[in-house]
Write a protein that binds this DNA or RNA. Structure first.
Lengths: 180, 180
DNA sequence: GTCTATACGTGGATAGAC
DNA sequence: GTCTATCCACGTATAGAC
């Protein structure tokens, strides 16, 4: 199992169980590696594992979201493409957001700064698209925040109700509503 | 310290740290009671403590949200009153929602059913208000879901950005937008 | 790189005195 | 009811052989 594949496992476990909830025993089991082997890849232990997971997400966002948002397609097309990526990444709302669960857990304070940074960048790039579409700067930022807010809210609600409808509905209408 | 006061401590700890993150040692410290004393009040251990916290929230929602929504004030007034209660309860978005953190944690599966139930009731009562205001039934349910979605999303975003603005903005405009 | 074995603290939980 | 003392499983982390 490559390090990339291990990190992918980490991402999925921390998303679903949070920092305290994901144990090394579980990680060891799912990766098939002994605990000691995990320390070969992540000498800093669990904290470094989370950092690696966050790195992976940063990279995923850059590649699959920000790159699209900075492309030269029409604003609507870019926003729709973003929504599609988001829908797949979160499995129609069935898999939690790593940022969200770490943000809620006060015990994960150490990661809050970089999560804040990642959110801020996404919002800025999103706001740039909206400005390009003719929306005034201040409103663009508010709407960009609203987009993230609705994605996150849809994730909670869809998991809470155990029904993917709210998430799918949100992703379907989000792009157009941002531009209206 | 009364049992009610102990439960209040539990609510706050589980909201902030989640199920795995809140340890008995921490609970013992904050309440001032020894671990053994906690088992006097909650023979079922940590799981029963969470149930007690969820009971408290159920009761709080019934008293401070549902009761208002079922009152005979105007729909707008009822919705605005709800928003005000929500804003205080979540401390302008600074304190997480117990439902949200337990919903995200897959290790807290045992509580998902009752959280789903609580969410469903809130949405139903909210939809009733909207119907009363002349909104067609199906749209009313969607909008009611949208309300919960935005509250939850605002909680995540406000904590993620460490900025209460998104939560406050959401709570300020929510009532009117639901009726528009 | 991966393993077995192990160290050592902390987790939740209990016993039993007061 | 509350305490001290204790139990045992599991948590993270490490040592050291292969």
């Amino acid at each position: 199992m490559s390090k990339e594949a291990i990190v992918l496992v980490l991402v999925n476990l921390f998303r679903r169980y949070g920092y305290e909830g994901a144990s090394l025993a579980q990680i060891s089991k799912v990766t098939g590696l002994g605990k000691a082997s995990l320390y070969h890849y992540f000498p800093g232990g669990k904290e470094e594992m989370v950092r690696a997971a966050l790195d992976y997400i940063d990279n995923w966002v850059e590649t699959n979201i920000l790159k699209i948002l900075r492309s030269n397609a029409s604003p609507l097309e870019r926003l729709q493409a973003m929504c599609q990526q988001v829908e797949v990444f979160y499995d129609r709302g069935q898999t939690p957001c790593l940022w969200a669960i770490l943000t809620l857990e006060e015990s994960s304070d150490r990661f809050h700064t970089r999560i804040k940074q990642a959110l801020t960048v996404w919002i800025e790039v999103l706001a740039d698209v909206l400005k390009e579409a003719g929306i005034e700067a201040e409103l663009a930022t508010i709407r960009a925040q609203e987009a993230i807010l609705r994605i996150q809210g849809a994730l909670i609600l869809t998991r809470g109700l155990n029904d993917t409808t709210p998430f799918e509905r949100t992703m379907k209408s989000l792009a157009e509503e941002l531009l209206s």
